[in-house]
């Protein structure tokens, strides 16, 4: 087993052991903290497919995070007020069922990612960064000025949505659900990376002219990667809204995009468990340093600087060295 595989196992186990310990120690707040980290990790796993594998520096992933959040908020708010979402041409009612909400959140994010990607991917470099940012900002201002779903104030959901067989209001049960989804999305990312698609996407990042010369369109590869990426980040958004039982335009903000990017870069770009390590570290720092000083972001910034300057490939790169790829 490679060093990275061992590290990944430790990360996966640690992510489980910590909240279990908190559960036994009756520290529900720490469980919630771990849940938050796991949700951020999912968002990062999504971005990593675009940023890490595809080399697509998207500063607009808040768009998908927010769409996922609002998918949850809109469906659940209609369910809690017993008003249908749509009466004509056919009846669409709200729902409090998590699986349904996840599917809607992922479909909506996938469609948005296809649309945003189709336009943004015609550019590259700084223009790509700016245009993805612009799309997310458009959605941000749209959410602010949409009074039906809370506008600037956001939209509270009073009871957490349900999952068959679980009491989702119990922190440890909700954590278990999020944790399982985190592992599932990591599995998807691993599959994508190893598949012919991932091979071609990875090559398109490094030598697009070569990919074209073997008869594969880099544009189509990137668009598909961007859509998969947005879909996963959208799922994270739905979970985040459910965690807080609150949706607000802040989910669309550029700070959110930046934070998702920080998870990926801090943990290790293009490393399978990079976003997991990054999100965990981010939440740990926020919790520990946030208690010491309101200006904890200064320390985060310094750490990020060190990682980018000296750590090859983030925390995972520092701990596991270069990636070994075989089979």
């Amino acid at each position: 087993m490679s060093r990275e595989a061992v590290l990944n196992l430790i990360l996966a186990a640690g992510f489980l052991v910590f909240p279990l310990w908190a559960w036994m120690a009756e520290e529900p707040f720490l469980i919630t903290l771990a849940t938050r980290a796991a949700i951020f990790a999912i968002a990062g796993v999504g971005l990593n497919i675009a940023l890490g594998y595809g080399g697509l520096v998207s500063l607009g992933h808040a768009a998908f995070f927010g769409i996922g959040g609002y998918a949850m908020g809109i469906l659940a708010s209609h369910a809690q007020t017993y008003t249908p979402l749509l009466e004509w041409p056919f009846l669409v009612e709200g729902t409090k069922s998590m699986p349904v909400i996840w599917i809607v959140a992922m479909l909506a994010s996938a469609l948005a990612a296809l649309a945003i990607g189709a336009l943004s991917l015609r550019t590259s470099g700084a223009y790509f960064i700016m245009i993805t940012l612009a799309f997310a900002q458009m959605l941000y201002y749209f959410a602010i000025s949409w009074p039906a779903y809370g506008g600037e104030d956001g939209l509270p959901i009073y009871v957490r949505n349900g999952f068959p067989g679980l009491n989702t209001l119990d922190p440890i049960q909700f954590f278990a659900l999020v944790y399982a989804l985190m592992l599932a999305t990591i599995a998807v990312a691993a599959l994508v990376r190893r598949a012919p698609f991932g091979l071609a996407l990875n090559a398109a990042r490094q030598a697009p002219e070569r990919v074209r010369a073997v008869g594969i369109s880099p544009y189509r590869l990137r668009l598909a990667a961007f859509a998969i990426s947005g879909t996963i980040t959208g799922l994270a958004g739905a979970l985040f809204a459910d965690l807080n039982r609150f949706v607000s335009p802040a989910m669309f903000s550029w700070q959110t995009s930046g934070e998702i990017m920080v998870f990926v870069i801090l943990g290790g770009t293009a490393r399978l468990f990079g976003p997991v390590a990054g999100a965990a570290l981010f939440i740990a720092l926020e919790h520990l340093l946030g208690g010491v000083s309101d200006y904890w972001h200064v320390f985060l910034g310094a750490l990020l600087l060190l990682v980018v300057l000296f750590g090859r490939n983030g925390v995972v790169g520092i701990l596991a060295g270069q990636e070994a790829r075989r089979g």
Binding site: A195, P196, F197, L199, V211, V214, G215, A224
Partner: peptide, 13 residues
């Protein structure tokens, strides 16, 4: 990569 391109297999996941 060449083999994948030749087979039109880039969208296998």
């Amino acid at each position: 990569l060449g083999a994948v391109g030749a087979a039109g297999g880039a969208f296998r996941f």
